[in-house]
Simulated scan of single mutants.
Amino acid sequence: MSRQPRERMRKRPTLEDVAAAAGVSRSTASIVLRGPDGASAAARKRVEAAAFELGYRPDVRARQLATSVPKVLGVQFRLDSDFHARVCQRLYLDANAAGYELLLSGVSPTRSAAESIRTLEDARPSGLVLIDPDEFPAGALDVGIPHVAIGHTGPAELERVSTSTGLGVRQAMEHLAALGHQRVCHVSGGTHPVARRRREVFELEAERLSIEGWTIESPDGTVAGGIAAARSILASSLPTAVLAYNDEVAVGVITELSRHGLLVPREVSVMGFDDVGWIASGLGLTSVSQRIDLLSQYAVRLLLERAPSVFRPEGPAHLKVEPELKIRDSTAPPGSN
């Protein structure tokens, strides 16, 4: 029985392939794909188009070997957070685009934040990204590795990138007010600093907009927490709209309201916060996007700018990202048919 010839594996496209397809030199293609200025707009457009068509991806490991510089960024994240998972996905894209790989270290009920950070620091990465760091071990900033936090938590001396919580809650409340809602319940997310801040702004915005607003605490920022909070809502006076601490809590609220025959948004509008992937867009949930793309881009940029000198004489940088309201199917005017 004769063998069929094995299909030859397609060769991984190289920088030379991209340069040839774009009709430019190898050095020009390299400049474009590494990001710095130095190539014309026309050349940049041709190189980017050729790289996309060929499916070119930079060989990060080869670049590291060529430069003899470890180009790795460490990331601390919580294993139980969908939002953190989405941030990590985006960090992979932005780190790889800059020629870096990621080293992830998770935090869980059985693994402390301090242990997670120590693991990353022992690997001696070029920099560390800490997503919502609830704990921060003493002396961690003295090890000579740049640290950048994504979020509002962690010590003040950390450089950080965060979304404006106040503006996000304001956008949500103005959206509900514009729809005509006058009775809005906020389902909070427990004792986390971000949850406390969102509750404070909710109360201020309810007063500013002359909305009857009240808060029901959920045990935590999970779907189960949202279900528990919805039971409290059902046991009291029903609002026309619910603003949840995050998308997971919103899903829990919708699940429990639906189980009791209440239609969303016809009888109760429900909003989330964070705009996390499948939860928000997949379920048609109106939410406030934290702009994960910008949080990731700015965090990587801060690390790479800071890498040559660990300390800024002018103090730590704090970049603010403007949130974006994503209006979908879970909100409507009260009593909509």
Rank of each mutant, 00 (worst) to 15 (best):
M1N: 13
M1S: 14
S2C: 14
S2Q: 14
R3P: 02
P5M: 06
R8G: 11
M9P: 08
R10F: 11
K11P: 02
K11A: 09
K11T: 12
R12D: 00
P13I: 00
A19P: 00
G23N: 12
V24A: 04
S25L: 02
S27I: 13
S27R: 13
T28W: 05
R34A: 01
G35K: 02
A42D: 07
R44E: 10
A51Q: 00
Y56V: 06
L65M: 06
S68Y: 05
P70G: 03
L73Q: 04
L79E: 00
F83W: 10
A85E: 09
A85K: 01
R90S: 15
S108W: 08
T110S: 14
R111W: 08
R111V: 07
A113Q: 13
P125F: 00
P133D: 07
P133S: 03
D134Q: 11
F136G: 01
P137H: 07
A138Q: 12
I145A: 03
P146M: 01
R160V: 10
S162R: 15
T163L: 03
T163R: 01
T165R: 05
E174Q: 15
A178K: 06
H181T: 10
H192E: 10
R197P: 05
R198H: 00
L209P: 09
S210M: 12
G213L: 08
G213R: 04
S218T: 02
G221M: 04
A224R: 01
G226E: 04
I227D: 01
A229L: 03
S232H: 08
S237G: 12
T240M: 11
V242I: 11
V242F: 07
L243I: 12
N246P: 05
N246V: 00
A250W: 00
V253Y: 09
L262N: 09
L263N: 14
R266C: 11
R266V: 04
D274H: 07
W278E: 15
W278H: 15
I279N: 03
I279R: 05
L283T: 11
L283Q: 10
L285N: 05
Q290C: 09
S296V: 12
R301E: 15
L304P: 02
E305C: 12
S309L: 14
V310D: 04
V310L: 05
P313C: 13
E314A: 12
A317E: 11
L319K: 14
E322G: 09
L325A: 01
I327W: 03
G335I: 00
